[in-house]
Design a protein around this nucleic acid. Structure first.
Lengths: 350, 350
DNA sequence: ATGAAAGCGCTAACAA
DNA sequence: TTGTTAGCGCTTTCAT
């Protein structure tokens, strides 16, 4: 691999001149510039970013640390972050922790020793944060994404979960639903709690009592959706609608629907957060709280770079990003209401 | 950020000693070792891997460059590669090209200047490979994953596509199907052609003529699955089974099924490659050609590291990995055969 | 407009 | 067992 010295030799200039034509630091005469260019081409030279980093004490490397790339929510976030990173002259790499705190620890340590300028983190760690404090103390910029890490004060880009849930449930109420169940995520997690709060607020607004029996605590996984979905469907007095706090659980709920022969929305309405796209060809399309993932990635990267470049004041900036409610057929009015309440009926019953 | 010099000072030893306790290069007396350890702790010191890399001329960084992390095929590959990379003392990062050759070019260039020791590549480029040749010439180890890049001679880990398709179609034949249609991927791609060949071989083995009208060329995307699925279902003489060459297209086919009220496998059997997991709660589970993704990632990383460490001879090693056929209900016998041919019937018709 | 040279934080060869 | 020092490939200050 050619070095700057070899290029300089071949072009018959000093290494400073080579550096200058590469980085445009000072003006170099056209003649020398051309000679340097030619030498670079001939030698298939690529500047050693490692050496440069050592000298200038920054790598222009950013890392995005994710708990689960399988979740379709993340790829768009990556794209958003990647695009703004590139625009601003940084390289973004991705690493996967598989929701394992051990892996996260390892990865963060590696990133630190590689001296990445900053990291975007959707942490797998609920509480154990020693690996993060050490890293932050050492001066690595950190912005939290999607989830904050309790006990750590950094910039963060989060969804307005309360609002997303509130608007979705509000919509269901407006469609005529009164008995609405919720399958929450883990209430140990901030996102889980916030989404539940949104649900409660929407009910209160409409003077509908919040009944404990309609609140089912899941854990954001398939199984809990299936189990709780089934539980709901077997109740004596069933709700007319279910609000599910993420996509994976919704898959479980749909499985329960299928097993019990429930048609949606005819027998039961459904709405969901989009953590997992349920963009299947099979069912009624689902009313969904959509997170602006691309934007979240882009903003997070923007904040991170601002922070790195010292364009932010001391205070952490916490951005709450607004979800969008996409209304589809899964929340059409419950059958009894549709029958009497609505002015026009789509299809006469046979 | 503390440096090795500061640690040495605080521990009252030479920097060589510090280096030696960190790397275990030579034996250091317990007393000094302890002093160094303490200093490291006190200073929250993390060795500068950048500086080390510059000196030892290797970064121990590996990169995996993927065209589409959305595809559920890839996360497992990443895990496999990550695990073996870690075991062997390397760090693996991931980068996404979004199937855009421009992005791939940019990313590969960046990786090269960061002097990653090697890259695992599932290339987005069909033909344009200048960015790769330059990089390989410069000494960056490259192993192709899932797809080869035509015109480039490197190590590669690929699926035995012919075998996967052959065994799957063979299974359908054995279940009693004779009229089997195939929706292929793009025949410009090696994977597309190989899977078609497997289909043809299976038919020939069974002395079933390969009819042009049953071979529908898709492009690995949802729309082509939908369109061609519909086309097949509207034929005067329908096949009894369809073999679809990847998962995304299968989603399209299922959509067509639903629109036309086709029940699977009752009205039409179906089998697929698993490029997209169709692990939905909705439908009959699909008979699937499963790729050993974890293993592919692991082997690719293994080869890459062997190559980097010079444990391989000159010749590229091309590994063909075997798929597994998972038989599920979607390929149950066609209704006419089931009625007369099978000894035991699952359910009497009503 | 160009060049010489110091030094970024580390490793390893050499010396003691 | 420990220490001294050259040098990895760059950038940048200081001269010219």
């Amino acid at each position: 691999m050619a070095t700057i010295v070899e290029v300089a030799k071949r072009a018959n200039v000093s290494i400073a001149t080579v550096s200058n034509v590469i980085r445009g630091t000072r003006t170099v005469s056209p003649k020398l510039t051309e000679r340097v260019r030619a030498a670079i081409r001939d030698l298939n030279y690529s500047p050693n970013e490692i050496a440069r980093s050592l000298k200038v004490r920054q790598t222009r490397m950013l890392a995005m640390v994710l708990p689960d790339i399988t979740n379709p929510f993340f790829p768009e976030i990556i794209r958003g972050a990647e695009d703004t990173a590139f625009e601003r002259g940084y390289f973004l790499m991705t690493a996967n922790t598989d929701e394992q705190i051990g892996r996260e620890r390892r990865i963060v340590a590696a990133l630190r020793s590689y001296r990445v300028d900053g990291v975007l983190l959707a942490s797998a760690s609920g509480t154990d944060i020693s690996h993060l404090t050490g890293t932050i103390d050492a001066g690595v910029a950190l912005v939290c994404l999607d989830r904050t890490v309790p006990g750590i004060k950094t910039d963060a880009v989060l969804l307005d979960n309360v609002r997303g849930a509130r608007e979705c449930v509000r919509h269901m109420i407006q469609k005529g639903h009164r008995r609405i169940a919720i399958i929450t995520g883990s209430l140990d997690l901030q996102t889980g709690r916030e989404r539940l709060r949104g649900y409660e607020e929407a009910l209160r607004e409409a003077d509908i009592p919040v009944e404990r029996g309609r609140i089912l605590e899941g854990d954001f996984r398939y199984d809990s959706g299936y189990r709780l979905g089934k539980h709901i469907l077997e109740q004596a007095v069933r709700p007319t609608a279910i609000f599910v706090c993420n996509g994976v659980m919704t898959l479980g709920v749909l499985k329960a629907f299928e097993e019990l022969g429930i048609r949606c929305p005819h027998d039961m309405a459904l709405a969901t957060f989009d953590d997992l796209a349920v963009d299947s060809p099979f069912h009624p399309h689902l009313t969904t709280v959509v997170q602006p993932s691309y934007e979240m990635g882009a903003r997070a990267a923007g904040i991170l770079i601002d922070r790195i470049e010292g364009q932010l004041n001391k205070q952490p900036s916490i951005v709450r990003v607004a979800p969008t409610l996409i209304i589809r057929e899964s929340t059409d009015p419950p059958s009894d209401i549709a029958a009497k309440g609505s002015k026009q009926r789509t299809k006469p019953k046979t």
